[in-house]
Amino acid sequence: MTSDITRIGAGGPPADGLGARPAGYETMDDHELLRLHVAGNPDTFGILVKRHRDRMWAVAIRTLGEPEEAADALQEAFISAFRRADSFRGDAKVTTWLHRIVVNACLDRIRRRQVRAADPLPEDEDRAAELAGPAKDDPAEVRERRLDVLNALKQINSDQRSALVLVDMEGYSIEEAAAILGCAPGTVKSRCARGRARLLPLLRHWQTTRGGSDVPAKTAAESVGTE
């Protein structure tokens, strides 16, 4: 478990100045785009969205499971970011800030959904294949694996799923995830542990196909040998 979430910070090439034409925006870094947006530029926020939407879509669809919900959450998140961009503190990464807004929008939707537990989400099986992304973009095994994870995540409860996505998949520390989820660190650890136990039988074929169990990362004896 690591608190390193630098992988969401794609960033961009260095800024090339304020007077750049629209085509030049593509080469600006995230901070510069956001600064221009706050100053009134009508185009730069859209470029930020395009730059990071696949990353944010991954977070939303893994956390929420349903494309319609994920799309709504992302829309809320990006509008919120658009309007509150002037509250962004320049010492953080733009992607870290954006990521947090997206996570919060997703969790808000889960909480609202839980309030009306008698209102089950519709299954949207028609879109299942689409969730794995356009066929031309990735090799078949990558798409298949992606779908396996999305389908498995949908089968565990939303508390466990949120904790697992934040900690195991997005790389937040237990403490950061606890702050985001508004619960104790021990609760996050417990949800992660139970979530992994639920996911294991659903994803075990990964490890058989990879021969994972033949080459364990570390043995229990090595890992738990001291008390």
Binding site: D54, R55, G171, G212, S213, P216
Partner: peptide, 28 residues
């Protein structure tokens, strides 16, 4: 071992972006 491996596999998978479906991207 499988649980330890699962954590690592989820982290690997988590590093990958997922292309946003075209209609959703256009709407956004």
């Amino acid at each position: 071992d499988a649980l330890v491996q699962l954590t690592e596999d989820l982290a690997d998978e988590g590093r990958a972006d997922i292309p946003m479906p075209t209609d959703i991207a256009e709407h956004l």
